[in-house]
């Protein structure tokens, strides 16, 4: 923890200013009110694809209409039972690539209702509660997440002034391929005089 700011300069300046009478005098201006009770909401944004699938039919606004998972899985449980591996997944899940450690489908999905999750405790949870499932293995990440040290946020640091939106695990880590994707970086700085490049020199 840094000590509250109180440098020698802050202490001596007023005295010296007083000595140098004639220097403009500062106008006292009150500080703004302190933060109040944290009444704001922390909402976790869950992406739509967590429990629905885009179809080829588009709505009036041009976006594809989404079909909820249970539309198929609840109606024909036997037909949509859990396959043995990703390669065996039928339409509309064909071609699904899984790269998530040594996990099998049943490690996460409920074998009866693959649109639901099965926790280690045996409890079955809806897809939207996937974070509970993730937390079973990724405990440190979950702990960090709960303290704002993982996953980022949008909105207010001060919950007395407004709400905060947190990312869901799956927004950054696709459940079947959770490694964070590499991104194209934005262009380098456009300095008036660019620095000499020398990355290669030191490898």
């Amino acid at each position: 923890m840094p000590r509250p700011y109180r440098s020698t300069h802050a202490r001596t300046t007023p005295i010296l200013l007083a000595l140098l009478a004639g220097c403009g005098s500062d106008v006292e201006r009150p500080l703004a009110d302190p933060p109040g009770e944290p009444t704001g909401q922390v909402r976790i944004s869950a992406p739509a694809w967590l429990d629905s699938l885009a179809t080829e039919v588009t709505g009036t606004d041009g976006t594809p209409l989404r079909l909820r998972c249970e539309s198929c899985h609840a109606l024909s449980p036997s037909g949509a039972a859990l396959p043995a591996s990703a390669e065996e997944a039928g339409a509309p899940h064909t071609g699904l690539e899984v790269e998530h450690g040594t996990l099998a489908c049943a490690s996460c999905h409920d074998s009866e209702r693959p649109d639901r999750l099965r926790l280690a405790s045996g409890h079955v949870a809806p897809m939207r509660e996937a974070m509970l499932l993730c937390a079973q293995c990724h405990g440190t990440q979950h702990r960090d997440y709960q303290h704002g040290a993982h996953g980022g946020m949008q909105g207010y640091w001060d919950l007395s002034r407004g709400d905060r939106v947190r990312n869901h695990c799956v927004e950054c880590h696709a459940p079947h391929r959770p490694a964070y994707p590499r991104l194209r970086p934005l262009p380098p700085p456009h300095d008036r005089f660019p620095p000499v490049r020398h990355e290669g020199d030191h490898g």
Binding site: L183, P185, P187, R197
Partner: peptide, 8 residues
């Protein structure tokens, strides 16, 4: 370096 420029 601050002027790196990679594909990814």
């Amino acid at each position: 370096t601050a002027v790196y420029d990679h594909e990814a």
